[in-house]
Amino acid sequence: MASEMVTIYVMGKAYEVPRDLTIMKAMEYAGYRFIRGCGCRGAFCGACGTVYRTKDDYRLKVGLACQEMVQDEMYLAEIPFFPGNKATYNVDKLKPNSETVLKLYPEVFRCLSCNACTKACPQDIEVMEYVQAALRGDIEKAADLSFDCILCGLCASRCPAEIVQYNVALLCRRLYSAKIAPRAKHLDKRVKAVKRGKFDKELAKLMKMKKSQLAKLYSEREIQKAD
């Protein structure tokens, strides 16, 4: 299946590649073998953040190499690593409020509300909104809005205030989940029951069973109806 070719410039160097490829596959087609800049290949890991520009356009655009299709006359470079600041902390000892966020990441104060981060996000996350929420101490909102973040770092690469949004978001999600969201009481109860050995006997019985006995139990087992 012959497909139409386009010219892309990988870090300034021209290669002819089929038009129907993602940036990542196009670079491999051209002969690159990735060590950095390639991870899950499915937009979950954030390894392949890429900055590019197209012909006759002054604007810099960003995307994930594993998802973004090549275009003719595309100038591109991957940013497989971004040296963003990460605070270290013990979540157990933190309070879920804005003081915590600002103590660990004081640069959040510097947010100019320019929205460059939101425009850069390949996951279409309202990045500036969650930074503002974190600043206000609305940890739940920051956690919710930032949930789909894959830590690619493209937001931080475009931020004039030098905020490392994705690490702020991670802190907020951990604070929310560990400190604000109500605990699953049934879970603690079950952990204690397991520790007491409540299920040991039943398990031991199953472990001794022959395949035929297990198979009988398995095919007769009751299946919970979904609501």
Binding site: V91, R173, R174, L175, S177, A178, K179, A184
Partner: peptide, 9 residues
């Protein structure tokens, strides 16, 4: 849960 994984609840 304790570490702060955001489970659906």
């Amino acid at each position: 849960e304790r570490l702060g994984v955001m489970f659906d609840k």
